[in-house]
Design a protein around this nucleic acid. Structure first.
Length: 559
RNA sequence: GCGCCAGUAGCUCAGUUGGAUAGAGCAACGGACUUCUAAUCCGUAGGUCGGGGGUUCGAGCCCCUCCUGGCGCGCCA
């Protein structure tokens, strides 16, 4: 609605400007390619405003207000959509639409229902969002939770913009960290059987390793202790990795995140993809040998130094896997690939983009979203977070303490690329005044109004039966305008890849609704008013539900 | 040293990609339940947008510079 109206306004302004040139009231003779029409922050400045006169003033060598007057005189409101047009400030032209025009939005929302807000600009394009991708060497912690919430919301947002979205988890199951996992479990197995041996600092210290050791002994038997390490470590690596990954999947499931595909790094090796990636770059002439290693000439594509793919000891680097993996992603036919990384990996972006360019793709086909690490606090005191030391609070524990919806909202209400303090005590204490409950409460309240209406034998009014002139309050018009902006917001958030914009909107919508609710009765004496208000609040409910859906947060009917 | 990100109210953060008088939520104080849910509402306050310079009709946003903080700069992952 807002977007359509802006287009209409741009068209009218173009016509008016042409008419001015025709009549000679203006004479710069050139119609700007993009005329800026916007929604002013201050409602007193109209529903829409244009800066056209300000932009033209210099070329016209006239005062901006004079230019505005000429434009206004030439403007033809054929469809009678304007209640008022005025010139204000240095030369803004402000447009006020008729109420009836606005209330058309409510009909639109009723017609589209769950689809209201959906965009089409992504239609026909396939996008992949890869996120979390934590090593299966330990349970997910709070930082992974932020990545999970961000990636999932982004995937939902892009789907709402029309993209065909695939969610993928890349399992780093090939590196020597996995060997360390196997060794850690083996050492704990021996310990359980009374062997006294030092437990090295570079092994995983967490208690979950002892649990895995216990399970391994129960399932694999005592031969684990007698067989040579060359056999038992790979066995335990595999065993532990599978168990931990299953736990990760369960945690994510309960966090509301489900992946379409779990992609194993090891499978890249097994299918020869890593070698193929290296061969590809070599064949293209983007690789060279130096000091026993094979290098990718990433400086050719904007990186500040070249990168090793094949080490002197014959092993490939992590980067080689990543090149192969991203090559494979594009081979699968994705138009866009989005990686969500911890911000501490930001230094890898230039080399990854270089690889994408070397693979013959536009470097913008890969976008990396950085998620800053979460600073976990408990009662103001920092909590040490290290998988290796075993000192960490798991995502599971935080979910249990704080709740899934509150946790997701907390992560999603801030730009992903800014640091985040997550204080467990605070999150618990504030849970009753947490913004997520405020928003969900608005939704639940509307459900409650509907129950009340049903009790009194009042059903949902059909669009044709609603008299919009019954919605005569300024609050009702303001709410309607806010609802009208939702589709634009989805589009803007989708283009910017910033789901957090939705939380600010929801906060505003809930605030306006609660104020309205407290001041006026929806189900009241007058049937005409009741029906109009009932129609309005149910449209609010739809938009709240649709927005929460994009964030992956529940919309409860009762609280 | 170089690079990336950030610096906005006491605290935590938004700020519609350059528009008009910079906004929320917490925290503080005073009020509102005979009502469709008080997890709510109403009222009161808070600012050198890190500092300085520049670009223009107009800057929290763009450019330069300095300060502060986080992170990164491996043939680790």
């Amino acid at each position: 609605m807002v977007a359509e109206m802006m287009d209409t306004l741009r068209g009218l302004l173009r016509e008016a400007l042409a008419a001015c040139f025709e009549s000679g009231s203006l004479n710069s003779g050139e119609i700007p390619a993009d005329i800026v029409v916007e929604v002013p922050a201050n409602p007193e400045h109209g529903d829409f405003a244009t800066t056209l006169a300000l932009v033209l003033a210099k070329k016209e060598q006239k005062a901006p207000r004079k230019v505005a007057e000429a434009l206004m005189a030439a403007l033809r409101d054929r469809k009678e959509i304007f209640a008022r047009i005025e010139i204000a400030g240095p030369g803004f032209i402000n447009f006020f639409l008729t109420s009836r025009c606005w209330y058309g939005v409510l009909e639109e929302i009723a017609r589209q229902g769950q689809a209201y807000g959906r965009q089409r600009f992504g239609a026909g394009k396939r996008v992949q969002v890869e996120f979390v991708s934590a090593n299966p060497t330990g349970p997910l912690h709070i930082g992974h939770g932020r990545g999970a919430a961000t990636g999932d919301a982004l995937a939902r947002l892009l789907a709402a913009c029309g993209y065909e979205v695939q969610r993928e988890y890349y399992i780093n199951d090939a590196g020597n960290q996995m060997q360390t996992l196997g060794r850690s479990i083996l050492l704990r197995c021996r310990e359980l059987r009374g062997e006294k041996a030092a437990f090295p600092a570079d092994c995983y210290q967490g208690d979950y390793i002892r649990d895995l050791a216990r399970e391994a002994l129960a399932e694999k038997g005592e031969s684990l202790l007698s067989a040579p390490e060359q056999e038992t470590i790979p066995l335990l690596t595999d065993f532990g990795g599978r168990k931990i990954l299953a736990g990760i999947a369960a945690d994510l499931e309960d966090f509301g995140v489900r992946f379409d595909r779990w992609y194993s790094e090891r499978s890249l090796f097994e299918r020869g993809e890593v070698q193929k990636g290296i061969d590809y770059l070599r064949a293209k002439g983007f690789a060279y040998e130096k000091e026993d290693a094979l290098w990718f000439e990433s400086t050719r594509f904007g990186d500040d130094k070249d990168r090793v793919m094949l080490r002197g000891n014959g092993l490939t680097t992590y980067f080689a896997s990543d090149v192969a993996y991203h090559k494979e992603k594009f081979d699968r036919g994705f138009d866009r690939v989005i990686d969500i990384w911890g911000a501490d990996h930001h230094g890898y972006i230039p080399r990854m983009k270089a690889a994408v360019a070397a693979l013959g793709r536009d470097r913008e086909d890969l976008q990396v979203i950085l998620v800053q690490l979460v600073n976990l606090l408990r009662g103001g005191e920092p909590v040490a977070m290290s998988t290796r030391s075993g000192e960490f609070v798991t995502l599971r524990e935080v979910m249990d303490e704080v709740g899934k919806d509150a946790c997701r909202y907390y992560f999603l209400s801030r730009h992903s690329d800014s640091k985040l303090d997550f204080d467990l005590e605070l999150a618990k204490e504030q849970s009753s005044s947490n913004p997520v409950y405020y928003i969900q409460y608005a939704h639940a309240r509307i459900c409650s109004i509907n129950r009340k209406a049903a009790e009194e034998g009042i059903g949902q009014p059909a669009t044709a039966a609603v008299d919009f002139s019954a919605l005569s309050l300024p609050e009702e018009l303001a709410l309607t305008k806010l609802l009208a902006r939702f589709p634009e917001l989805v589009a803007a958030a989708g283009r910017a890849l910033e789901p957090h914009r939705l939380t600010a909107y929801l906060q505003e919508l809930a605030t306006q609704f609660h104020a309205y609710y407290n001041r006026y009765r929806v189900v009241g004496e007058d049937p005409r008013t009741t029906s109009g208000r009932l129609y309005l609040v149910n449209r609010i409910q739809t938009v709240i539900a649709n927005a929460l859906e994009i964030l992956g947060i529940g919309a409860p009917e009762k609280m």
